[in-house]
């Protein structure tokens, strides 16, 4: 997120940010949704279903899981950030297939089209 000197001064003085940065942020959010043609309800339903599927394989922190749309250069990406709970040893606890996968990541999935 771009920040200008004025934004920083405003923040230090606890003043409202200049309205251009508010406009920019609001636009970026609304355009990500416009471009994907997804309503908030659909996005929420998708989020729940993605969490269900992922929860079949790994233990995830459902409260922390976030699925959102991000947009840059007219490309919109579906970004899922799903923290995977770990055991005390630092290994990922895999539920179903008793693999010994040691990936230490909480990964993201993404891509989708522009329109």
């Amino acid at each position: 997120m771009a920040m200008t000197l004025r934004d920083i001064i405003n923040r230090l003085l606890r003043r409202q940010p200049a309205s251009a940065s508010t406009a920019r942020e609001r636009l970026q959010l609304v355009l990500a949704h416009d471009r994907s043609d997804l309503s908030t309800e659909l996005l929420d339903q998708m989020r729940r279903e993605i969490l269900e599927v992922v929860a079949k394989y790994v233990e995830i922190d459902v409260d922390e899981g976030a699925v959102s749309l991000e947009t840059e250069d007219r490309m919109t990406a579906l970004v899922a950030n799903l923290p995977i709970k770990r055991t005390m040893t630092g290994q990922i606890k895999l539920k179903e297939p008793k693999n010994q996968s040691e990936e230490n990541s909480e990964e993201t999935e993404g891509t989708d089209q522009n329109s």
Binding site: R6, A18, A20, A23, R24, Q28, D73
Partner: peptide
């Protein structure tokens, strides 16, 4: 207004619309 950052800048608009 643009100089006072009370209006979207040229860069803002060209970035957003690409």
């Amino acid at each position: 207004m643009m100089a006072n950052q009370e209006m979207l800048s040229i860069e803002d608009v060209t970035d957003i619309l690409a």
